[in-house]
């Protein structure tokens, strides 16, 4: 554990779980939809629903959707800034079974009309966990370089995708595949030991049947 996990992070208050973590959730939803979010429907669960208003959780989530970092002093004004940027948002509450008490479900649409639904929780210290993606269960935090590949569920896809990663000399530490039988969609989450370069994303995107590729590199969250 680094001493800067003890003295730090620098953040906008009041709560690492309900404010800083909420910013991170918004950021990850932004990365997963890709491009610029124009519409968001955010459902708060558990303690986010009951104490979120006083913690600025909704403002923090919207700030994250715009790519702000958890220490950005514009977070308290995120609603106003979203209005200027043309990001429409609405909030509601939801009951999530088996989820951590600090959770939210974000449905985000970008300027191209693409949509993603992200379920995430904020267990503390500003860390987060994505537990569902487009209705499928998953588990990743974005604390290590992570590739998220959404594709048609076809034989051979996993080996083709991991082949691209391995060919770049990138070590995979974890691979998780979830399939939606009805939709014929699969989601691959690949955690890596090294930063994932842009060309890996491009090469995987070129594979037939791949619908969307997201790469999360720690330290590049605000892009």
């Amino acid at each position: 554990m680094s001493i800067f996990d003890i003295l730090g992070p620098v953040m906008v208050g009041p709560s690492s779980s309900h404010t800083a973590g909420a910013v991170r959730m918004g950021q990850i939803a932004r990365r997963l939809v890709g491009g610029e979010p124009v519409r968001a429907r955010i459902l708060l669960a558990g303690s986010f629903a009951s104490t979120g208003a006083g913690h600025g959780t909704p403002r923090a989530l919207v700030a994250g959707l715009m790519g702000f970092m958890p220490d950005d002093e514009r977070i308290p004004r995120s609603f106003e800034i979203a209005g200027e940027r043309g990001l429409a948002y609405e909030f509601g509450t939801v009951q999530l079974r088996d989820a951590h008490p600090n959770s939210a479900l974000l449905t985000v649409e970008n300027e191209r009309g693409e949509r993603v639904e992200v379920g995430a929780s904020s267990p503390g210290g500003g860390r987060i966990l994505v537990f569902s993606l487009d209705g499928l269960p998953t588990a990743f935090s974005g604390e290590v370089p992570t590739l998220i590949v959404r594709c048609e569920d076809r034989p051979g896809h996993v080996s083709r995708v991991t082949g691209v990663v391995a060919a770049q000399g990138i070590n995979m530490s974890k691979l998780r595949v979830e399939r939606d039988e009805r939709g014929g969609t699969a989601i691959m989450v690949i955690e890596c030991d090294q930063r994932i370069p842009y060309k890996v994303k491009m090469a995987i995107s070129a594979i037939e049947g791949v619908r969307k590729v997201t790469r999360l590199n720690p330290g590049e969250e605000s892009k």
């Binding site: 003890i6 003295l7 730090g8 992070p9 620098v10 953040m11 906008v12 208050g13 009041p14 709560s15 690492s16 404010t19 800083a20 600025g56 403002r59 220490d71 002093e73 977070i75 308290p76 500003g126």
Partner: peptide
């Protein structure tokens, strides 16, 4: 109060206790 009012602080070791140090 800065923390409660969404100002930028250093968690030390947490946001709730950011005023002590």
């Amino acid at each position: 109060e800065c923390n409660a009012c969404m100002k930028r602080i250093v968690a030390a070791p947490t946001a709730g206790a950011c005023g002590v140090l």
